[in-house]
Structures are given as C-alpha cells and as structure tokens.
Design a protein around this nucleic acid. Sequence first.
DNA 1: TATGAATGAGATTTCATTCAT
DNA 2: AATGAATGAAATCTCATTCAT
Lengths: 201, 201, 201, 201
Amino acid sequence: MGKLDINKKKKEKSLLDTAFELFTTKGLAKTSISDIVSKAGVAKGTFYLYFKDKYELRNRLIAHKSSQMFKKAIEQMKQTDMEHDFETDIIFVADNMINQLCENKTTLSFISKNLSWGVFKNALTSGGNSKDVDFTDVYNMIIENAPNTVKEPEIMVFMIIELVSSTCYSAILNSEPCGIGELKPYLYSSIKHILHDHIEY
Amino acid sequence: MGKLDINKKKKEKSLLDTAFELFTTKGLAKTSISDIVSKAGVAKGTFYLYFKDKYELRNRLIAHKSSQMFKKAIEQMKQTDMEHDFETDIIFVADNMINQLCENKTTLSFISKNLSWGVFKNALTSGGNSKDVDFTDVYNMIIENAPNTVKEPEIMVFMIIELVSSTCYSAILNSEPCGIGELKPYLYSSIKHILHDHIEY
Amino acid sequence: MGKLDINKKKKEKSLLDTAFELFTTKGLAKTSISDIVSKAGVAKGTFYLYFKDKYELRNRLIAHKSSQMFKKAIEQMKQTDMEHDFETDIIFVADNMINQLCENKTTLSFISKNLSWGVFKNALTSGGNSKDVDFTDVYNMIIENAPNTVKEPEIMVFMIIELVSSTCYSAILNSEPCGIGELKPYLYSSIKHILHDHIEY
Amino acid sequence: MGKLDINKKKKEKSLLDTAFELFTTKGLAKTSISDIVSKAGVAKGTFYLYFKDKYELRNRLIAHKSSQMFKKAIEQMKQTDMEHDFETDIIFVADNMINQLCENKTTLSFISKNLSWGVFKNALTSGGNSKDVDFTDVYNMIIENAPNTVKEPEIMVFMIIELVSSTCYSAILNSEPCGIGELKPYLYSSIKHILHDHIEY
DNA sequence: TATGAATGAGATTTCATTCAT
DNA sequence: AATGAATGAAATCTCATTCAT
C-alpha cells in the first residue's frame, strides 16, 4: 500500500471516527456533514469522495462497530480454557458482548437496536465488500459446533440476537425496568430455553 | 362540543393522520412540516397551534397507535369464552397484537421498535395526559390475575414485550429469517419459558 | 386584489427585473440565485416561492420581453395612418421590432436567438398561463388580413422570424458583417420575396 | 509521429468525442469537466493539458464539426458533373449541408445556431490555428466564381447562412412548422432571391 | 506527461418558524 | 383560530482547479 493509499485510509478513518463521536453525542439528525468535516479537519468536498451521504456513513459505522464487537467476543471465547460446548459458547459470546456494551455505552446507544437481524444478516452474507470481519466463518463455526441436530439454527440465532439487543438497550442505558446485572439471570435463562427449543437430542 | 371545537378536532386529526401516512412512507427524517400541512390541507402556521414540533407529533402518534392496539387485544381477550388463566391470557394478547400488526404493516413499521419498554412504561405511568387508553388498569389486572407469586413481574413483561416487538418487525415486514407463521411456535414457546422463569409455584 | 397580492406581485416583479439585468450583464451561467435575491432585496427562500429555478425564470422573461415588443409593434402599426395592406403591415412590424431591438441591445442580446419559432409558437398556443400578451389574436389578424390566398402562412411567418432574428443579432450587436442600417434593404427585400413566394394572386 | 504523440492525439480525441456526446445529450451547462473526463477515461488533470476550460473545448468542436461538413459539401459539389454556375453551386452546397444535418441530428443540435456568422467568420479569418479546413480558399473560390459583379458578397453569404441554419434547426429537429422536405422549396426559393438581389447583371 | 485526491468557495435548496393580516 | 408569505440560517452538494506523486 503506497503512501497515497495510506493517506486515503487515514482520511476515511478520520471521517468515520469523527462521525461516530458526533452521532453518539448529538444524534444523527442533528449532526450535519459540515459538523463532521470541520471536526475531522478535511474539506467538505472530501466527504463526498468517501460517502454518498450521511446515511451511508452511518451504515458503514454500524457494520464496523458491531462486527468489531462480535469479533472480539469470539476471540476471547476461543482463548478461555473452559470446556467448549455449544450452549456455554453462546452464553459466553452473548455475555461478552453485553459486557462490552456496558463499558461502551456510546456504542450501545449508537448501534443499539441496529445490531438487529437486518444488519447481522447483511454483514453475514455480503462479507466481501469491506475488510470488516467476515461473520460467515464465525457463524458457521457456531452452527457446526452445535450438537448434531439444531432445528432451524437461523431462527434460533435471530431470536437470541433480537432478545439480547433490545433488552440490553433499555437495561444498560436507562436501568429500565432494572439494571443489566439484575436482568442477566433471566436473560441467560431465556437464551438457554431458546437453545433447548431448537436442539433435538 | 361546539362546532368550533369539532372543527379544531378535525384539523388536529387531519394533521395526525397525514403525518402518520408520511412518516410510514417517507420516514420521519424525510418528512417536513411543509409536507404534512400541505397534504393535510391546513396552513403552515396552524401546525404550531397543535404541536410544538414534528417530534411531539410523532410521540402522540406512537402512544395513540400502540394503546389502540393494546386496548383492542385486551377487549377481545375478555370477550372470548376460553378459560382465563394467566399464561393463556398473555399468549392471547401477544398473539392478538401480532395479528393486528400483520394486517397493518404500516403501523408496524411505524411503532415497530418503538413499542418498547420506554413507550410502554411511559404510557403506563403518565396515563393522565390523553384520552388514550390508560394502560395501568390493564397492566395491573394482568399482574393481579397472575398466580400468587410472580417474581419481578415488570422484568417479565419487559422481556416479553422486547422479544415480541423486535422479532416481529423483521419477520412480518421482511420475512427474515422466516415468516411470522413459522416463527410463532418458537416465539410462544419462549414466552412461556419466560413466564415460567418468573412464576414460583 | 388585496394588499398582500399587490405585495406578492411586487416581489415577483423585483425578482424578474433584477434577474433580467443580471442575465444581460453577467450572462445566465454566471448569474447565481444568490446574486439575484441579494440585488432584488429579498430572502433566498423567497425565490423558490416564485420560481422553480433559474431556468424557469429565464423562460418567463423571454416570453414576457418578446411578447411586450411584439405587442408594441402591433399597436404602433395600428396607429399609423398608412394604408394597411398585408405586405406593408408585415414590413412595418418587422421594422418596428428591429428598431426596438436596436434601441435596447440588452434585450436583444437576451432574447437574441430565443425569439425563435419555439418560443413564438409556444407563446402563440399556450396564451393562457400568463398575463403576457396573447399572440394568437395578433397572429390571426395578420393571417386573416392577408390577400385571400396565402399558401402555408405558418411557414411564411416562420421563415421571416428566423431570418430577421438571426441576422439582426449579429448586425446590431457586432456590426457583422455590416451595420443594421446597411443590412435593412437586403433584409426587407428578402422578406418581400418570401411573402411573394407564398401569395397566390 | 512517435508513439507518444499518437497517444497524446488519442487522449485529445477521446476528450473531444466524449465532450461532443455529452454536450449534445445533456447540454453544455449541465456537462461538467468531471463528466467528460470520467467518461473519456482520462484523469481530471489531463483535461487541463489540452484545454483551458469547457468553453475552449466547445469552440474547438464547433469549428471542427462545421468545417468538416462544409468541406464535405464542397468536395461533393466539385465531384458532380453538373454544370457549375454560381447559383447552382451555392444551392448545391446548401442542400448538401442540410442533408448532412438531417442525417446527423446530434451535430445539428450542437452546432445548430452556432453555425452562425461569428463562428463562420472566425473560422474564415483565423484559419491558421488548427488543421481544420481553411475556409478561406473555399469562400474565395465561391465569390470569385460569381458573375463579375456581386454586390456585397459578404452580406449575401451572411444572410443565406443565417436563414438556412436557423430554419433548419426547427424544421429538422422538431418538424416545426413543417418538415425539412416541405420547407426546402421555399427555402431555396428565398436563397435564390437573395442571390439575385446581390447580382448586378 | 499523466494522475486523481483534495480542496473550498459557492451554488442550490430546504425548512422550521414568525408574524401581519 | 387560521392563514401563508416571508424569512434566512443552515444543510446538501457541485465542481473547477491545484499539486504532490
């Protein structure tokens, strides 16, 4: 990668980082492209060399941030010396991501309800277009790691993701109806029930 | 109610209806007050006689639409001659609301992820400010109807609402990862598990 | 017409007049909407209450200016106590318009080659949309005033208008290939030939 | 001519061709240099190695296209074995050019009203700057070929060119007020009248 | 020569809000 | 209470031009 390419990457990263900061502090609607470029220290026109508009930038950010978190959770799961069985692994990943979100509330409030099936699925299938983690391998690994018969694994993953992401938003950010600590036991119990509903012994 | 008051109500309703249509078709961000008033057939200034801004209007709509649905579900539940036990009632209400959402996808896409704890809780506690249903009675009725010991009923309701609302959005609108019909058995099973986790026999 | 309507008309006129001045001095391409509004003394948004864009404004101006000129020529023709025969009338109108253009070179350079068949025809047929002169009456009067048999009167008028407008532009504005005075005899001779070619005695 | 020079010519030609296509389809004002270079497959900076700006490019195109047409008409005139007298030759050239324009409407719409005296005169007198045909010889040949006394030959040519170019535009492109076929007899008759007005027998 | 990323002035356009009627 | 013309700040977006590579 030449000097020029490095510089380009730096510009793009600067825009992404700045936008993330502004989106999480001021909100998407109240953040203008002018705000982003002036804070990022690039010219207005430069923005349009990298993104079609504010919304494309946002989508890029969501995909990036959520894949980063997912990747991290998987890596840490692999590193633990616990015994890896299907259920434990999934609870581990979920717990790890929830903890990441707790520590990083701005990311949570940003991807919040966007870490949903649409984005997940999209990241899963169109892995090619960016250097963001390719979910596919991870996803397949989880599925293949499962006991020989998982009924409708896609529905299972879907339900878990939706349950986790939507409940965490409220619990972590607003402590409503309770803090995340209090919620976890119920949440993980529900996840286990979902797993069991899909496993045929 | 005098003629003038009726006229006032008509104007307000026109604005609410038009805004709902535009919000669901173009999205909140892309709908301007100009759009709303010109389609509603009232003058720009008139908007400000009824609403502070776009966002107040949206909140009114969410509360209204979701309470309407909830009310309807409860009413129909009461009318069935099935035996009313706690679990059956809750599944009935959930199923009824899901069916309403299936038949009215624009409403779904609008309240979608907004039929969440924040709104629910808000509608529950600030029942006074509108003639929209007072959730409180209904909610209390459900809780009181429960077997003598429900642990953390609020958390229970919270989890159910979040699970249902977030999964339905994707299933009904995009048939992702599967249609609502296919999802229902798993969903209701999970709801039952959540209920059981909270009931102490 | 109420006070408000009068004020609206004034605003619109101010924009039209200012735009005309700027178009003729700086040219269409180099005149921005900002230029127009700031010189006209109205707010930028006001422009868009009256015109879709710069080009709509220009078209309105062309139609207006050329119809004004035409109207004036006809009026003056009617007022002369010369004997009104077909050929004399047409030469009179042409000459009168050419003289108007000579005295008002900015208008000439603006409508220049736009006083062409397209605009003429358009003004002729869509007389309704503005209070600009309705060409139709005038046109019909000329045609009906003709000796009983004019072959293809439309082609005849077309050729005259195109010949006059395109030669005058160069002659009046650039004195190329000669001044308008020197050109006139040849021009009017050609007009007469065109007339004769279309009249069947 | 070396390989490099050939490559240079190719780049320039590519820019000219692409610009011509865009000017005729989108119009000059709506065609940006960005459009041109990206379609031509060269870098932005390269444009400025060949042309000062959009307008210089346009002028080059007009001169080129019209001289090409004129050259062709003259060549074909020379090749016919008809008897070459002044009037016949001029009608032949006019007719030939009109036919070329009929078959190539994009060129017509481009040079359209630009094949006017200004450009013609310019091409005539500043023959040196390009390898495009030198009109001068041709022009002189026509004039010299004329019967010994042509009054004001320049005015004569001017009137013919203006008449032809402006009427053809509307007739060929819009069939307004009639098709070119129907127009021709009247047009050629007028040309002959113009010629006669300038010939002293 | 050729490139194309970067620029940033400035053009267009939108829109919430006001206020005289 | 209702209107809607007017506002003008601010947003989006374009594009000719430069310059380091």
